[in-house]
Amino acid sequence: MKIEKAIFACGCFWGVQHQMERAKRVIRSTVGYTGGKEQHPTYQEVKAHTTGHAEAVLVEYDAEQTTYKELCKLFFEIHDPAQTDGQGPDIGPQYRSEIFYLNEAQKAEAEAIIQLLREKGYEVNTRLTPASEFWPAEDYHQHYYDKTGGEPYCHIRVKKF
């Protein structure tokens, strides 16, 4: 098994984690905060827009069984990349669409998918940013829908690829 990581932000991290965890060969995921300036941010600080962080999901996957490209495709299928600073009912910069790439290969894969979507006529406002420190969210946020039995508002949309 070859474990690799990816970091995605596209709305409330509860739903993103829920969808990513159901992808083939995803081993585990953690919801948290990244992309901002504060160390050890709390949910309340991120929600108050004082940190610059996005709600994000750190995904660990078996790279021998799936690819970063497949996870990027899923990322674009579970949210609206045209929406800026929010997703559905969640509005604010912490809910932005952003891929935090961990290396140049991830950056190139994400750029290629964004280009493909644009060529097909889709508006894509997703940011591509080098990954910075990822801060795990509070325990009550981890695997929220599994704990509550709820359903996320983000669902697999029509395939764009």
Rank of each mutant, 00 (worst) to 15 (best):
residue 40 H to C: 15
residue 27 I to V: 15
residue 123 E to L: 14
residue 41 P to D: 04
residue 26 V to C: 06
residue 16 V to L: 02
residue 40 H to P: 09
residue 11 G to F: 05
residue 71 L to H: 01
residue 144 Y to G: 06
residue 52 G to I: 07
residue 25 R to G: 12
residue 22 R to N: 01
residue 23 A to Y: 13
residue 30 T to P: 12
residue 156 I to Q: 09
residue 33 Y to K: 03
residue 125 N to K: 10
residue 141 H to C: 12
residue 140 Y to W: 15
residue 65 Q to T: 07
residue 60 E to M: 04
residue 50 T to S: 15
residue 58 L to R: 01
residue 119 E to T: 13
residue 105 A to N: 11
residue 44 Q to P: 07
residue 92 G to Q: 07
residue 44 Q to M: 10
residue 148 T to Y: 05
residue 3 I to W: 00
residue 133 E to A: 13
residue 46 V to D: 03
residue 80 D to S: 10
residue 10 C to V: 06
residue 11 G to W: 08
residue 82 A to F: 02
residue 149 G to M: 03
residue 48 A to C: 06
residue 151 E to Q: 14
residue 98 E to L: 06
residue 75 F to D: 00
residue 138 E to M: 12
residue 8 F to V: 15
residue 60 E to Y: 14
residue 20 M to W: 09
residue 133 E to T: 15
residue 21 E to W: 04
residue 27 I to K: 15
residue 6 A to H: 09
residue 66 T to H: 07
residue 78 I to W: 02
residue 58 L to G: 01
residue 9 A to R: 05
residue 160 K to V: 11
residue 87 Q to M: 06
residue 128 L to T: 03
residue 141 H to P: 08
residue 2 K to S: 14
residue 115 Q to I: 08
residue 91 I to W: 05
residue 5 K to Y: 10
residue 67 T to V: 11
residue 19 Q to G: 00
residue 122 Y to P: 09
residue 112 A to N: 12
residue 119 E to I: 10
residue 156 I to S: 07
residue 83 Q to N: 10
residue 58 L to M: 14
residue 88 G to E: 05
residue 5 K to F: 04
residue 54 A to E: 03
residue 5 K to N: 14
residue 115 Q to N: 13
residue 9 A to Y: 04
residue 27 I to P: 02
residue 81 P to N: 05
residue 141 H to V: 05
residue 34 T to A: 11
residue 82 A to G: 15
residue 15 G to N: 00
residue 25 R to V: 07
residue 110 A to V: 03
residue 10 C to M: 12
residue 136 P to V: 07
residue 121 G to P: 02
residue 81 P to S: 08
residue 139 D to L: 04
